[in-house]
Amino acid sequence: MTDRPMVPSEVVLVDEHVDPDFHAAVLALGDTWTAPSGRQYRIVLSGSVLVVSWPSGEHLVPVPPGEQVDEDLLALAQAIYRARGGEWAEVDLERLAEVWSGATRPELHDAAS
């Protein structure tokens, strides 16, 4: 037994509106995607709705910390962008998040921080 919370639901993330331009890229990843962490996720695209969930039978696995799941999801998004190709393949999502954090406006950050 573990005192950590159990996965209450299989669903990890729902994206309701996947642009048709990305459908082939999502489908190219297959039904199950393995993150660099080794964790596996089930991927179902139905119409424009993408559901990312834990694979069946994994429901008794302890919930990983949110940051680890976020890292996996970031890697999944990156994989979709790479599969989409072209300009999208080159997007570094970590750098994108950094830009939006205000890295391009250093005056927003206190000198002490």
Partner: peptide
Amino acid sequence: VFPWRALHGPVVGPLFFNRRSVFVDGARL
């Protein structure tokens, strides 16, 4: 694509707008 459309693409949209609050925090830009 960079830095706008990639921000709200598949998976990364719900991740950056909800779980990681990248967009709402980035509004201060």
